[in-house]
Write a protein that binds this DNA or RNA. Structure first.
Lengths: 216, 216
DNA sequence: TAGATGCTTCGGCTACGGTCGAACTATGCG
DNA sequence: CGCATAGTTCGACCGTAGCCGAAGCATCTA
């Protein structure tokens, strides 16, 4: 739905983190009761998922598809929103988290590089990892066997909101992000979707994933 | 916006046809005055485009992106809607028009076939026509030079609502549809988004665009 | 010119939905 | 066992947004 309160909650959940009902209430700027009503609607609308843990209820987006559709909507809305270009905005455009994977300029750079090196190949039903790609992923420190064992799709494409291009989603996309976090290349900004690269991490990223400009 | 009246108008416009204000009013089930107000909102929301012709105002979707985002939304909503499986529903799943190109099972079949034959290649910023693809398109009776001259992108991908897979959009996608219409393979159902294949056309289509199953 | 038809603006009505205060249930903690 | 915290349900208030009737422009036809 397009209600501002619900929209705020959903964008907050786009960070991929599981948030409690009260946190979402604060995020949306409404009281707990109101938020409870909204969350009930989102829940039976199938947009969010809930996991009860102790006396907390952790909400997450129901599926990556929801995140993709929301990104699409933001792209449409972006033309209308007064472009309040805060300082945070630039950071969001460079790199942000989309549900659980990397988006923004860095996200499409990664995707383009994987394609250009032949690690990834696009088929009709989405991107697939090539044999060379498997080697690369293992070298990068990703446990492909564990990912393949899970039933979640390994590779998915996701349309980038700001770049209007494709970036890598799916369990591999998620694993890449967490791996780069472990490597100390980047850290996720608390309280927003921004992903902040360290100076060293940025250089390492550029070295590992040469931009598509060098291969086109 | 998610208002039912506006949603009905937009889905009506998904057919790709230009509709007048009164037609859209009937489609949405509201009076002309109400429709006028809605259309004004959609207009300054940038979702639709208008072309004045005589005393009529013809409305179309502003951009193919809008259609893509709407398809994405429908995919989300599809889970919620009571699945009233009318007879028309099956036809819509097999083939329908999405803004101005072919969608549904036939749409993804076409896309998969073009990929499998090497006529189309997927790059980071969307599908591109290969050299072999140019030959094929010309043989198929499409004036590529005219399409390339226009500033609209030749190839675009569009996520299919029912199939959850990619199909071909862009000016080439549009040209393919109209060409098949000219060949008598199919005709567009008046008053809905359904595309009806003739028995002969279905055979010809299958022969020309062997399903991806035969090449995987 | 007069008479249609397409569309828009204005004004007022109505209703649906968001909002919060207060009271209630459930879980965890000391 | 009480107390605090997380979350929900209920009821009432209120605003906004959709809706239509009537009147006003604009454009084509005769």
């Amino acid at each position: 739905m397009g209600d501002p309160a619900r929209a705020n909650m959903l964008t907050a959940l786009m960070s991929g983190k599981a948030l409690t009902a009260t946190e979402l209430a604060a995020e949306a700027g409404v009281t707990a009761q109101t938020a409870s009503g909204h969350l009930a609607k989102l829940l039976d609308g199938g947009l969010v998922q809930v996991r009860k843990q102790g006396r907390h209820k952790y909400f997450t987006l129901a599926h990556a598809d929801v995140a993709a559709a929301l990104e699409g909507l933001m792209g449409l809305a972006a033309g209308q929103l007064r472009t309040r270009t805060g300082p945070k905005d630039a950071a969001l455009r460079e790199a942000r988290v989309c549900y659980n994977h990397l988006a923004g300029q860095r996200g499409v750079q990664l995707y383009g590089s994987l394609l250009a090196h032949g690690f990834l190949k696009e088929a009709a039903d989405g991107p697939v990892l090539t044999a060379a790609g498997r080697v690369f992923a293992n070298d990068f420190g990703i446990d492909l066997d564990a990912l393949s064992a899970a039933r979640a799709p390994l590779c998915r494409s996701c349309l980038d909101w700001s770049e209007r291009r494709t970036h890598l989603a799916g369990s591999l996309g998620r694993a890449m992000l967490t791996r780069m976090e472990d490597l100390g290349w980047l850290r996720r900004d608390e309280g927003s979707r921004a992903v902040l690269f360290s100076p060293l991490g940025r250089r390492a990223f550029d070295a590992a994933f040469t931009g598509p400009s060098s291969s086109n």
